[in-house]
Nucleic acid binder design. Structure first.
Lengths: 343, 343
DNA sequence: ATGAAAGCGCTAACAG
DNA sequence: CTGTTAGCGCTTTCAT
C-alpha cells in the first residue's frame, strides 16, 4: 500500500512539486508552463495512478469540497430519497456529500453538527430535530454556511431554509374532507410538537375545522409520542373509531404514523374508505399500490434539494458578504387517490 | 468564525502544545503530567470551546476514524435501514460513517471508492454493483481494509464478506410453494445477472423446481432489466398470467420488483392470493400492512451490520498481519404471511 | 518557465 | 514533569 505522493511524481520526473501541483490544478497555462511539460506531467500522473491526498489538501486550503447532510431518520423513505437527491445536486457542483442520521435525537444531532464541522465540511444541510438550538445559533454566529430543510426555527431570524407550506397544505387537505361531507375529522399528529412543520400542520387542521363549521372537539387531535408510534396510534384508533362511531376521516402528520394507522385499521377490521377516509403527509411508492390507494400530500423533493444546495453553494462562495438569507417555500402537491369517501 | 487552535490554548495557558495534546488524548497520566495541570488544561479547553481540527489530525495520524459505506441505492428501504444499522455499529467503535449511494452504476461506485480512499477513510463497507471489479482487486492488492455485504465476488478469493444464503433461501421459498401444490411457478429476477445474490437466488429457484418435479419451462424465469422495472414487470405479468392461466405463483428477487409486481397485478385486477401467490426477497414494513400481507424472505440487517463492522474493525487494527478473511453467511428468515394460497 | 521554502494544525520522538 | 522540533502532503508566495 505504497501511496504515491506529489513528491514522488515530481522527483521521478525531475521537476518540482510546485510545477506538478500547478499543472494538476489547472494553473499550468496561467503560470506559463510549457504545453509539453504539462502533458508529461499528466502522463506521469496517470501512469503512477496518482491521487492527491484530500486530507492534506483540505488542511492546506481550509476547505474540503464536502458538504454534510443531517436528516432526522435515514431509514425513513422520505429522507432517504431526499438524501439521494441532495447528493446528486452536490455532485453537480463538484462537492461530495456526507450523510448522517440524527434519529430524531437532540444530542445526536448536536454532536453530528460538531463532528462534521470538525471534519471541515464546507457547509451543512439539516432537517433539524433540535429543541435546544444552541448549535444552530452558534453556526449562525460563526457565519458557518448552512441551510435548513423541512423544518426551521422561527425564533432564529435570518437563517436559510427550504420548506413546503405546511399550514396551507394541511388546511387544504382538511378542507377537502369537509367539502366531501366529513364533520368529525381526526388528526394524528406527533409530539413533541416543537417542530415548525408539525406546528404548522396542526394549525392548518385547527383553522380548517373551525372555518368549516364542523366538530372542533379537542379530543379529535391526538399527539402520538415519537418513541411509541405503533402502540399509541392503536390506542387512539381504538378510542376514536371503534368506540366512537362518529369519526369518519383522519389526517396523519407523516408517513410513519400513516403506516401505523393502516396497521391498526387492519387489525380492527376497519375499512378504508368505507368506514374511514384517510389522508397523509408524505408520499411513499407503496401508497399508490395499496387497495385502496392512499391520498397524500406529497413534497417536491427535487425542488427542495435543488434549492437547498444552490443556496448553500451561494453561501459558501460568498461566506462573509452574503447578508440576506433565503427562505424558500416550495409548493406541495395534493395527490388525490382512493382513500377518501364522499359522505 | 475564529477557530481556536491547540496553540491558542497552549500559549494562553503558558504551556506547550505537546502538553495540551497529550492531556487531550488521554496520555496525561502515561507521561506523568500533574493532575493539577491536566485539570487546568481541560478547563481551558472547555472554556475556549476548543475542538481539534480533525483534518490536521487525520493528516498527522494517517487515519481518519471514519469509515465509508457504499450502498447500491440509498432510496431503497433495505439499504437505508442497513446504513442506519451500520452507522450505529461504527459509532460504538468510535468511528464515524460516510454513506454514499452508487445508484447501481459501475462508474459511480468506482469513483466513490476512489473518492473515499482519497478522503482517507480507514475502511470501506460495500454492497457492490460492479461488473468491472478492478477497484476491488486494487484494494485487495493494496491491503486496504474492506468488507463486502449483500454481494461478493466469487472470482476474487479471500475477501471479507457478509451475506445471506441466497441459494438456500430461494430454494426454500420455492419448495414451500411446491409443497402447497403449485406447479407453475414463475420467478421475476433481474438483469444484468452478474450479482452473486441474484445468481444464487436464480439457482435456488431452478434447483427447487427441478427437484420438485414441476413445470421447468424456461419462460417461467423472467429477467427484468434494472433500468426499466415497471414496464418490464407489467409485460411479463400480462404474458404470464393474463394470457397464460397456468401460472399460480411468483417469486420476486427483490422489493422493487415486488412493488412493481403489486402494481401490475392491481392494474390487471389479478387477486392475491386467490389468483396468484406471491413471495418476495427483502422485507418492507408495508408488506405486513397490505391486504393480504406479503410473505417475504427477510434479511437480518442487524446481524449483517454487526458482523461487517466487527470484521472491518479487526481488519483495520491488524492491517498487515491479518491473513485469513471472513466469509460469513447469516441466516435469512422466511416470514410467512397471507399472500400464498394452498392449491 | 520553474523552484525553494513556508506553513495549514496536529502528534510524537527525543531532549532536557 | 515539560518543551523543542520535525514532519504528515499539499498549495502558494516569492525568487530566480
Amino acid at each position: 500500500m505504497k501511496k504515491v505522493r506529489l513528491e514522488d511524481i515530481a522527483t521521478k520526473m525531475g521537476v518540482s512539486k510546485t510545477l506538478v501541483s500547478m499543472v494538476l490544478n489547472g494553473y499550468g497555462d496561467k503560470n506559463g508552463i510549457k504545453k509539453e511539460t504539462q502533458e508529461k506531467v499528466i502522463a506521469f500522473t496517470r501512469e503512477l495512478n496518482y491521487k492527491p491526498n484530500q486530507v492534506a489538501r483540505s488542511l492546506r486550503l481550509g476547505r474540503s469540497n464536502t458538504i454534510g447532510l443531517i436528516v432526522a431518520d435515514i431509514s425513513n423513505a422520505f429522507y432517504a430519497k431526499m438524501a439521494r437527491n441532495i447528493e446528486d445536486e452536490c455532485n453537480k457542483y463538484g462537492y461530495n456529500l456526507i450523510i448522517c442520521s440524527s434519529d430524531e435525537k437532540d444530542a445526536k444531532e448536536a454532536s453530528l453538527i460538531r463532528m462534521l464541522k470538525d471534519k471541515q465540511v464546507d457547509g451543512l444541510i439539516i432537517s433539524s430535530t433540535l429543541v435546544d438550538n444552541t448549535e444552530i445559533k452558534l453556526m449562525k454566529h460563526d457565519n458557518f454556511p448552512f441551510v435548513l430543510v423541512d423544518r426551521y426555527f422561527p425564533e432564529i431570524p435570518d437563517t436559510n431554509y427550504v420548506v413546503i407550506d405546511n399550514y396551507k397544505s394541511s388546511f387544504k387537505a382538511v378542507k377537502y374532507l369537509i367539502d366531501n361531507g366529513h364533520v368529525n375529522i381526526a388528526m394524528l399528529s406527533i409530539s413533541p410538537p416543537h417542530l415548525t412543520s408539525v406546528k404548522d400542520r396542526n394549525k392548518g387542521y385547527f383553522d380548517a375545522i373551525k372555518k368549516g363549521n364542523v366538530n372542533t372537539d379537542h379530543y379529535l387531535h391526538c399527539q402520538i409520542p415519537f418513541e411509541d408510534i405503533e402502540q399509541s396510534v392503536e390506542f387512539y384508533i381504538e378510542k376514536l373509531i371503534k368506540y366512537n362511531q362518529k369519526v369518519t376521516a383522519i389526517l396523519t402528520v407523516n408517513q410513519n404514523i400513516a403506516l401505523a394507522c393502516l396497521k391498526s385499521l387492519k387489525k380492527f377490521k376497519i375499512r378504508i374508505p368505507e368506514d374511514i377516509s384517510l389522508i397523509t403527509f408524505d408520499d411513499l411508492p407503496v401508497f399508490e399500490l395499496l387497495s385502496p390507494s392512499i391520498t397524500t400530500i406529497s413534497q417536491p423533493l427535487d425542488l427542495i434539494s435543488k434549492n437547498a444546495v444552490s443556496i448553500l453553494m451561494d453561501e459558501i462562495s460568498h461566506k462573509n458578504t452574503r447578508k440576506a438569507k433565503d427562505q424558500i417555500v416550495v409548493p406541495s402537491y395534493f395527490q388525490l387517490r382512493e382513500s377518501c369517501k364522499q359522505l
